[in-house]
């Protein structure tokens, strides 16, 4: 069981919600710092740029405490275990698209996204999906460029037209 949240009865503290409470506390601190920085900048207006960040930071701080308290009460209901492999595939698709986009262009990068997502959902082979996805995206690219005059990122494939 690689699940980070042990799905046991209500007595044990809920670790995941502790982590969320901690994340909220960090966010509160970050925004609090921003508010402090902004408050130091002189401004003539009655309510300056720091007022709302201050309120939000306080609210986040209180919510961090509330979440921690609820986490102490324990896991409310059993959460089914999540599979890691499919998530990794989908994320690899999204990250891969960002990495490929600058030099490979829209069609190839987005074709990879399609193939990786399909693989994440258990459908291969990756290369066949990649080809189909890239071809589809190339058509979309042409429609955008000719029809709307919008330039999506171009790569070797797009330069052919």
């Amino acid at each position: 069981m690689s699940d980070p949240t042990p799905a046991t009865s209500g007595s044990k503290p809920d670790k995941a919600r502790f982590v969320i409470a901690l994340a909220l506390a960090v966010l509160a601190a970050v925004i609090g710092c921003e508010a402090w920085r902004l408050a130091a900048i002189p401004s003539y207006t009655a309510v300056g740029p720091a007022a709302f960040p201050t309120l939000i930071a306080i609210g986040l701080g209180l919510l961090a405490i509330a979440n921690a308290v609820e986490a102490m009460k324990g896991v409310e209901e059993e959460r089914p275990r999540d599979e890691v492999r499919p998530i990794v595939w989908v994320l690899a698709g999204l990250v891969g698209q960002i990495v490929l986009l600058p030099f490979a262009g829209f069609s190839i990068a987005t074709g990879w996204l399609f193939a990786a997502t399909a693989k994440g959902f258990g459908r291969g082979p990756v290369w066949a999906h990649f080809l189909a996805g890239a071809a589809l995206c190339f058509v979309i690219y042409v429609i955008f460029a000719k029809g709307l005059q919008l330039s999506l990122p171009a790569g070797p494939l797009e330069r052919l037209i």
Binding site: V90, L113, F114, T117, A118, K119, G120
Partner: peptide, 12 residues
């Protein structure tokens, strides 16, 4: 697999 692949293509 294709539906969600398509949704992500679409969203990006």
């Amino acid at each position: 697999p294709w539906l969600y692949g398509g949704i992500l293509v679409f969203a990006t």
